[in-house]
Simulated assay, not measured.
Amino acid sequence: MADQKKLVKRLLDVAGETYAAQAGIRLADKPSPLYRLLVLSVLLSTRIKADIAVAAAAELAKAGMTTPAKMLEATWQQRVDALGRAHYVRYDESTATALGDGAQLLHDEYQGDLRRLRKSADGDTGRLRELLRKFPRLGPVGADIFCREAQSVWPELRPYFDRKTLDGAKRVGLPDDAGELVKLVKNDDVGDLAAALVRVSLDKEVARHL
């Protein structure tokens, strides 16, 4: 156990930055940062490098598209242009459409506030994932991404270690079991550990630096 805790500490030091933090999102239980996480989750769902998706989320925010209302105020072309500046080019047009449609859905169903979606799920993680998957381009992978990152501000999701995180744990010799993993880290660091394990699962080089 002691050796595993040391490994986890090293893992957090090397790769424990969440994708939200990398995208410049100061995650909090507030409408704008939660919406920006939703957008990031959509962007990360496609077959594109994570760094490009993160850069695209940052470009959309830089262009002012930080709430559903502002996303809807932007033109489709402005969304495409922001994605293009981050080289998110293969899926830029379809994603620009999906982001517009998703913002409209969030506005219509939840008055633009994902906390209302959380309330609808009433603490049921499966139901939360089901509601998230109603957003365009947000499939099972995207729902996992959102929940992994949101667990730092929505405690009822903890511990959220999906298949990708457990694959990463196995790669570095940690338990591939959520109940065992959560014992190795402080409550506030569960989301960071999940992010680190995903990075390990996606990049063998990360594991070599441990």
Rank of each mutant, 00 (worst) to 15 (best):
S201Q: 02
L38T: 13
E93K: 09
H107M: 15
T46I: 06
V190R: 10
L181K: 08
G168W: 00
R90G: 09
V153Q: 08
A196D: 03
A23H: 08
T97E: 15
C147Q: 03
Q111R: 15
P136R: 04
V185D: 06
Q4I: 03
P155A: 02
V185P: 09
D3A: 12
A86D: 07
D3K: 14
A15I: 11
M1V: 12
V39P: 11
I48E: 07
A178E: 12
P175F: 00
V198W: 10
P33I: 09
L132C: 07
V42F: 00
D29C: 13
K9C: 03
D189A: 15
D124P: 11
A56R: 06
N187P: 04
D81C: 02
T18Q: 08
E149F: 01
K9S: 15
A207V: 08
A207W: 09
D203M: 09
R26H: 12
L72N: 05
R158W: 00
W76P: 06
L7W: 02
S45W: 08
V200G: 06
V141E: 10
I52Q: 07
D192Q: 10
A196N: 07
R118P: 00
T75V: 08
Q77I: 05
T97D: 14
A121T: 12
M1A: 07
Y35R: 08
